[in-house]
Design a protein around this nucleic acid. Structure first.
Lengths: 167, 167
DNA sequence: AGATATAGTTATAATAGGTAACTATTTTTT
DNA sequence: AAAAAATAGTTACCTATTATAACTATATCT
């Protein structure tokens, strides 16, 4: 406030309400990270609504789908697969186990690790959720044609799948 | 743990290390939200690295760019533009002001609001940052051709720009 | 047997994000 | 012109996410 370093003409006060509610034309519109964040915000909002009824968070959904696809997957596998940290997996699986959707089974071969399995309830739920998630995606991307939607998915995969060294 | 409800064959312990570190072939790969999150994770990681030297967070960068583009923008304008909440803007501008990058000027016309301006330092920094951000985007999306990158950006904009009612 | 590595866990901290309530102003209504 | 309502910004608070470090129990290596 006491800084005297000024640029434009600070004493000349902000004009009307003439300021934009979009960043149209701004360099920001060219930034991939910004576009990704905004798009993700929108898609996740739809997802949240779709899952509210079942009180399922994005990470829980992802976990359920992976466990369904690979019954007996270990927690460290899950961490790698979803690229989240082991401590995060613990609370994730805790929440699923508490709700009777999944369960840990101590591995006989290596008694340090747990295989994660879906319960019958979990299996039934994940089937339902997959349908809801697909519907939610469609709603969130109504502005895209079917071809564009596929294109977008392909491009996104291409971005995150390239494991240079990170991730 | 005491749940007796089982699905696959939990007693049969998890197989080797035969589990995947990708979700290849899984329904998850078809989910837009998942793809967006993973891509964003990657792009943001590069961005963080690029900005580390200047200790600038994504939201700070976005704010700086918007202020540069619309000198005298008010905090509520900024909140709308970036679709973040007013309280978030407060701490954002605080951090920029403390570092001498931006400053608030009480508006004469409407003394409730502040116009936000960049200082000379802020202007110089944002110029530098824009270059770094562009470079970071390119690095994060090495796997894309220039055309694909443009395509991706266009598609993402199309997703988040369609204001049906949300956002 | 002893050293080292791994799977999972706990505790903890940093941060993002959002809600509610408050102050100072301005605008609207009567 | 006074009272009521709306607005800009702020503060306090609360929750969820994410990362880090340290601990345990098992397993592997030499």
């Amino acid at each position: 406030m006491t800084t005297s370093k000024k640029t434009s003409s600070p004493e000349q006060t902000p004009l009307e309400e003439a300021y934009p509610t979009t960043v149209e034309g701004l360099v920001l519109e060219e930034r991939l990270g910004y576009a990704l964040r905004r798009a993700q915000l929108k898609v996740f909002k739809h997802f949240d609504e779709a899952m509210r009824e079942h009180d399922i968070r994005p990470a829980q959904f992802s976990s359920l789908v992976v466990i369904e696809g690979y019954p007996g997957v270990t927690q460290s596998n899950l961490a790698q697969t979803l690229s989240i940290d082991p401590p995060r997996v613990v609370s994730l699986i805790n929440s699923l186990e508490e709700r009777g959707l999944a369960l840990r089974v101590r591995c006989k071969r290596d008694r340090r690790s747990h295989g994660i399995f879906l319960t019958k309830t979990g299996e039934a739920l994940v089937e339902r959720l997959k349908g809801l998630a697909e519907q939610s995606d469609l709603e969130a991307t109504q502005s895209l044609s079917e071809i564009e939607r596929r294109q977008l998915l392909t491009l996104l995969r291409k971005v995150y799948a390239s494991e240079e060294s990170d991730d």
